[in-house]
Amino acid sequence: MNSFNEIEALWKKIEARPLPDATQIIGKAQKNKNQVSRKISVQIFCMLLVIPALFYVGLTFQFQYWSSYAGMILMALCVLLFSYFRLQQYLFLKQVDFSEDPYELLKRFKKFYAHQQWLNTKGSFWYVLILNIAFALYFYEVVYKAPTTMPVKIMILMIYIAWMLIATRWIKKISNKKEHKKTQAIIKQIQQLQQSPDS
């Protein structure tokens, strides 16, 4: 039988859409931000370890060809420049305060995301390219001119190529995807904050 009771029962089934809770959203955004900044700080630390290692190699071994030194200098420059860009991102994330105006914060985060995408695509492409040129210069003496047999040289070259392919085609892609996803999540959370009456 058609009655008002059926309408009442139907109304009770209506779920009010979840209302944004600023504290909860800020908590999630903060967590994502900490994960991204932690990843960046570890990356900077690891990259900067290369500098003393290069110093050690450069000062310990007497290379005969200038190409070895040029390769090491290029490697150091590459690492320093990439670390500088990553440091910029780290410092941005460190000073982010989710209690500030979400409209302003969103603008800055979108800019950060654009920079992150640029660095992880075009920036990263140039980084890998120059790093490979640096390695080629360095390996010229270390591998090619070294008194090792041809199969050993080929094997070293193959290992290097394989590692580069794995690092740039697989590990880097997965890592970047995760990082971009987290930044996208932060942007989404800031957009939710805009709707929250607490913000």
């Binding site: 109304w11 209506i14 009010a16 859409r17 209302l19 009456p197 607490d198």
Partner: peptide, 17 residues
């Protein structure tokens, strides 16, 4: 205010809807 909001917002939203 936070308490009021938590308690009544879903109901007010349904009424407005």
């Amino acid at each position: 205010f936070a308490e009021i909001y938590q308690q009544y917002a879903p109901q007010v939203l349904r009424i407005c809807m």
